[in-house]
Write a protein that binds this DNA or RNA. Structure first.
Lengths: 220, 220
DNA sequence: CAAAGAAATGAAACACGGTTCAATTGTTAT
DNA sequence: ATAACAATTGAACCGTGTTTCATTTCTTTG
């Protein structure tokens, strides 16, 4: 040692922190793009590293494991979708009208971004991620449930358990999209068939919500 | 060679065939039990072999691959369930009545045989099997579709695309059961909560089918 | 500039699980 | 009994894809 003087070198500077955050974001973004193109199973760590312009090992400085990385990717991706869904829930109108808009929004967006939607909804992933994926569906269900509750309170909908109904609607949407999403892209892309599908789906979900047939009991 | 005589030895005897068939069944049974306990991903070939009391290699004399083995397991398991469902479809009554019975049958059976139902419906599996599993849902959907079509023809149900509606109903049932089936067994087993769940599910599915409100247009 | 130490590298190690195969055991027919 | 050949064994194989780690590069401070 050079005469007892302590040399304090390298404390993480804001500049550096920024750079690190940027890299982290780059990794997540590359992973999102790749998973949207090839699905979860078909996306390996080396590939992600290449796409992000860094080395394989570096990924593990930012994320403890592949599962953790994709947890974040899925979370971020679905946050985006949920935002769009929530926006559809906020348009003014009766409960049935709003519900119709929500279902249509969900279906249209999923059909447009097929591979990502498949990764988020149907593609088989490991058990850890699977639990998360179920958690991602909850917000959709919650938003639907709220609209149903409001509709019931306003006597626009028949009495029901809004929780179960909302779960059923989520299931109905997912199951209906499952077929088209599983096909190799380019098949059902014709707006013709898809249009009919979305229309029938919306109608069925509306019926499930149980709209009151006529305007409130002739109180006028 | 012993003086030109041809020695024809070992032709597969009925006795032997029986033994082989028994082994094959043992393998399938062990696989079914293990998959019900730990899921597809958590069930390896060596483990199955141990449970069946044979060697790993022998499995491949009976099944060409792990996927093929589980294909058979799933097929056998769901054949039984589908039979029960089809029986519920054949009771006499109006379309809504029959549909209610079918939905209830499905839900009750699934909730009773939790582990198997989970394996057939929810447990994540590889891509090859996933396609098969979807195929197993088709019979349920087809049976529902037929009832809906008949109901439409009899003017018991509003006009609709029975195919989409039936897909929605299947999705609604599965999604509703997904929660209870995922819980560690013993949780929601109380008949209390389950009863309410089944009732609400049946009601929602009935609404989705769109029953005509009053009996046929006052023709009397 | 030099020291200190973090961040990045990428090739290699490792884990996992399905599949194979040479050797062994078992069965049939003469 | 024995030839012929099927059935069985289980340890080794192999591909895949995640994770590690010794080395190098870069950033900060005295």
């Amino acid at each position: 040692m050079k005469h007892g003087s302590i040399v304090m070198a390298y404390r993480r500077t804001p500049r550096m922190q920024q750079r690190i955050d940027a890299t982290r974001a780059q990794i997540a973004d590359a992973a999102r793009r790749l998973v949207a193109a090839s699905g979860y199973a078909g996306t390996g760590i080396p590939e992600i590293a290449r796409a992000a312009g860094i080395s394989t090992g570096s990924i593990y400085r930012h994320f403890p494991s592949k599962a953790a990385l994709f947890q974040e990717v899925f979370q971020k991706a679905s946050r985006h979708e949920i935002a769009a869904f929530a926006q559809a829930a906020q348009v003014p109108g009766t409960a049935p009208e709003r519900l119709a808009g929500m279902v249509e929004t969900f279906a249209r967006r999923a059909l447009r971004g097929r591979t990502l939607a498949r990764a988020l909804l149907v593609e088989p992933v490991g058990p850890e991620l699977d639990a998360d994926r179920r958690r991602f569906r909850a917000p959709y269900q919650a938003l639907i449930e709220e609209v149903l509750s409001e509709g019931m309170a306003a006597a626009e909908l028949v009495p029901q358990d809004p929780r179960i109904t909302s779960i059923c609607i989520v299931g109905a949407i997912v199951e209906t999209l499952l077929g088209p999403l599983s096909e190799r892209s380019g098949c059902t892309q014709g707006t013709e068939e898809e249009e009919a599908l979305v229309r029938a789906l919306v109608e069925t979900c509306l019926r499930a919500a149980g709209p009151r047939p006529q305007t409130p009991p002739r109180s006028e």
